[in-house]
Nucleic acid binder design. Structure first.
Lengths: 370, 370
DNA sequence: TTGTAGGCGTTATCAC
DNA sequence: GTGATAACGCCTACAA
């Protein structure tokens, strides 16, 4: 085993057949007689040959069987979001039939100075520029999205973008964020609510939490679109941007919202289930009864660990389907077929976290304690 | 751009140099005169050449720059665990200097019948058998661990195992689970507790939740070792196996533990922070005050989203360091150096979820309500 | 059904 | 500092 790994040529020689025949035995592309196959397999076993070297095969075929998934953030940050995780599952499933695996890639690996001859160790990092990928999936709405796209298209690598607008002819996987969020807004309006506040995802990659300034730019598509859905129904609704999508960020936002009993909203429309869970916790902290004193809606329809016994009123999206759709678009492109952009839709699901607007003066918080 | 991608030979011709020279310009392995470099770069730009084809390069070099990470479960299941996520971050960082990226691989992709000539579409899946990887990291303790190891070692691919015993000469990244858990047990013992119950991770891949049967086999190393730490101090402590590591599983376990006020423990040692968080929630549900009526410890030292204001008494492990250690072991092996197994240690951290054993009859639950 | 030939795009080696 | 040469290991026409 030490000397040198056996190659298919060795196996063929050992089996007394031509290399191409041995190759065909392994690829199965052409019928082979049982006797020949057996001889080849035996020879392979004898030599410890475990199959074609994927590196050589991919050079020859022009395909590596690897799809890159480009993240903006630390993987840790990305995968803590159940929606992205589900999406990865869907993507995994969708590329499996292609015989492809997923390679994790980072945005920031695109070096500012990719020119050769610079400092030695710097440009050896794997990246969009050098990864042996057949296609790539770009997720979300990084400020570097454009840059990544350019690098990949210069390499001639097909790309799919999930939940962001990439312009040109790049296929996208989109969600009906605005319409869906509007449905939730209509729901709380129909329940009689008027004092409504939106708790949003971040406005941009580096924005800090806080009330939206009037007219502030929102560079994150998802944030913008969902907020537009709220404003379709409540044009003047205030919006508070969370620092990310997590329970703790939602809790922080909720504390601000409920700080002043006189000015607090009767309904909170959060842009993710995790944020909604945090808002609910803040409501409990403030002595408010969810659904009775304050209604809360989420977005995503994921199972929030630890939220029981509440069941969120939310917009259910099929995150795995997003991944699958991306995988299918990739399959199409690798097949030189025109890839289709896809727009998935959310389903409104009423849970037990929304209820009729309380008559004023009737909330738990406004009643004298005990 | 349609006709054919330019190759380094095209660039060399255009620049009027030898292919090997052009290659060197891109790899930087050998000094090149500025003039030559400039000519080559110009030619490359003119032809739209974006750098060496990684497939060809990896064939030539015998390295793909890809490290496989083998999961047993759906990625979704794996990445929802913050510990694994952190570990991935550490691993990512550690392999970056190698110029390597991470390829996600599944256990179950090892086909029962890898023989060629079978049904066509079946054996095209990417897997341990065909992925173009330079090394692999196996995580946790799958029943298929052995099988995966065999496949990889037959291919001559170096392997590192995290938190499992792989026997032979496979380098491992281990944690002092037993000693660490023992420290927590000693802590609660010193606080006077005697009625102690362990809430453990699953006993095996397919075990269902419930009280440990006496003498039942524990195939998951982590579960076994941490429980041993508890038993070092409380030889007779009962143990309840959760169905996984999540808040909801901890909640379910906690409900069982606290169901009978007369028989409930005064301290619960959970094998993960998520489980501990669930137990805490169950305690609240049961009207128990955490730390006062019941002490709860966790394991991992991760930030549990939504657990505030509690700060768990727990064993802090550096999950990212596990990933880093694995990456370093890989680096060593790829360098033909002897890889070192590493044993990382946890640090005990006291939070506000443990307190002295309550005097009997003094708990909130036993007081009349009102 | 099996064998032959040629090249996929690169880079290590060594001579110049 | 640059160039010629020879693999790296495999696969796919095509011919037999």
């Amino acid at each position: 085993m030490q000397p040198r790994r056996a190659t298919i040529a060795d196996v063929a020689r050992e089996a007394g057949v031509a290399a191409s025949t041995a190759s065909v035995v392994f690829s199965g592309k052409t019928p082979v007689s049982d006797a020949t196959r057996a001889r080849v397999m035996a020879a392979a076993a004898a030599l410890g040959y475990t199959g074609p070297d994927p590196r050589a095969a991919s050079l020859r075929r022009g395909r590596s069987g690897i799809v890159g998934v480009v993240f903006e953030e630390q993987l840790g940050a990305a995968f803590l979001d159940p929606v992205k995780t589900l999406m990865m599952d869907g993507l995994t499933a969708a590329v499996a039939p292609l015989g492809a695996g997923l390679l994790l890639l980072h945005d920031h690996a695109v070096l500012p100075e990719p020119a050769p001859g610079g400092s030695d160790a710097e440009f050896t990092h794997p990246s969009l520029t050098t990864a042996p990928i057949d296609a790539a999936v770009l997720i979300g709405c990084s400020p570097r999205l454009r840059e990544s796209l350019d690098v990949l298209s210069a390499r001639g690598i097909p790309v799919v973008v999930i939940e962001a607008d990439a312009g040109d002819g790049v296929p996208q996987i989109l969600l009906d964020n605005r319409e869906a969020q509007r449905a939730a807004a209509e729901h709380v309006r129909d329940l009689g609510h008027a004092r409504v506040v939106a708790v949003t995802l971040p406005l941009s990659a580096k924005a800090s939490p806080g009330w939206h300034a009037p007219g502030a730019a929102i560079t994150v598509d998802v944030t913008r679109d969902r907020l537009a859905g709220v404003r379709d129904v409540f044009p003047d609704a205030a919006a508070y941007a969370a620092g990310g999508s997590s329970i703790d960020e939602g809790l922080a936002a909720g504390r601000v919202l409920f700080a002043d009993p006189a000015a607090r909203p009767t309904a909170v429309l959060a842009q993710s289930d995790l944020l909604a869970a945090g808002v609910i916790r803040a409501a409990e902290e403030a002595g408010l009864r969810v659904a009775d004193d304050v209604s809360v809606t989420g977005f995503d329809g994921v199972r929030v660990d630890g939220l029981a016994p509440y069941e969120l009123t939310t917009l259910v999206q099929d995150a795995a389907a997003k991944g699958r759709a991306a995988g299918e678009a990739i399959a199409a492109m690798l097949d030189a077929k025109p890839p289709a952009s896809i727009r998935l839709t959310c389903t409104f699901r009423r849970g037990n976290t929304t209820g009729p607007v309380p008559e004023s003066g009737e909330t738990a918080a406004s009643r004298p304690v005990e």
